[in-house]
């Protein structure tokens, strides 16, 4: 009976792994197939390993530039998010006050508001600050969008850290402000990893806002470039898939690099709710 249960456990685990990777298999299969094999009738389980697809997709699209744009926007937004959200979370978690309570409540309620409501007025705002088709405005916008969730995660995490973490630094003459940057901040690695993964991915993958505010093709981010590519070369599935696979790689690698801290980082949020 126990053996059967163990077998079942492995069988289910194998099944859900297969289900999860199936579309990735399809993507790589198409990305490595010649045009005829990608769309031909009947199927071979292995592609014909046409690595040229990647070079071709890279050359006919502007996916390289788009990835550079995405990297600039994602990287700068993340720096801003980590700096602002961690300090806000510290202040809210440690120093109760009307202002801090109001900030937290505002951010929590805002999580329920779909970003699409603000698209029109945001567009006129972006226009009046000359932010359309610029990196800096998109960075500020993406950082602002990530603020509610990030502050919430930092706040819940810091609440679970013992106060002694910074108290000794304060004894030694630090202010609470500098004690945070010198001491507490270094204890926040797990939650920072969670924030970097969650907001980093949503910025890298952002389409709904980029499509409005980054219309010039030199400013396109990766999802916009793939959408454009799909309109132009939609019939060439192998090139489409290769282009998509190129853009997925950084997201997948970044996730693999940060994931070991990930669960720890969201635990505080999941437990304190």
């Amino acid at each position: 009976m126990a053996r059967l249960a163990a077998w079942l456990k492995y069988a289910v685990a194998a099944l859900i792994s297969l289900i999860s990777v199936f579309p990735f298999y399809v993507l790589l299969y198409l990305a490595l197939s010649s045009p005829s094999r990608a769309i031909a009738n009947g199927i071979a389980w292995l592609p014909d390993f046409r690595f040229r697809n990647f070079a071709d997709a890279w050359n006919v699209s502007h996916i390289g530039m788009a990835m550079a744009n995405s990297a600039i926007i994602t990287g700068c937004s993340l720096l801003l998010i980590v700096a602002l959200a961690s300090s806000a979370g510290y202040s809210i978690a440690r120093f109760a006050g009307k202002f801090n309570a109001a900030v937290l409540n505002t951010l929590l309620v805002s999580m329920m508001i779909p970003a699409i409501i603000i698209t029109v007025p945001l567009y006129s705002l972006m226009k009046s600050i000359h932010g359309i088709n610029t990196h800096w405005a998109m960075i500020l916008l993406m950082a602002a969008n990530a603020m509610p969730l990030s502050v919430f995660l930092y706040t819940s995490f810091i609440k679970l850290l013992p106060r002694e973490v910074e108290e000794s630094a304060v004894m030694d003459g630090c202010t609470y402000f500098s004690a945070f940057w010198r001491v507490t901040f270094h204890f926040l690695r797990p939650v920072t990893a969670a924030v970097v993964i969650l907001s980093g991915l949503s910025i890298w993958n952002n389409y709904a806002q980029a499509v409005f505010f980054l219309q010039k093709s030199e400013m396109h981010t990766f999802p916009l470039a793939v959408a454009m590519f799909f309109q132009k070369y939609g019939a060439q599935w192998n090139l489409m898939a290769a282009a998509a696979a190129i853009g997925l790689a950084p997201a997948v690698l970044a996730f693999l690099a940060f994931q070991q801290y990930f669960i720890k980082g969201i635990t505080a949020g999941a437990v304190k709710g």
Binding site: Y90, M147, V151
Partner: peptide, 30 residues
Amino acid sequence: NNRLHNYMAVPAIVLFAVFFLYPLARGIGV
């Protein structure tokens, strides 16, 4: 400097107010 820690949420909420709360209020007007 000694009271700075009470206001460390200011930059975050200012950024959020400019790019979310203000357009939200305008949006309800529109």
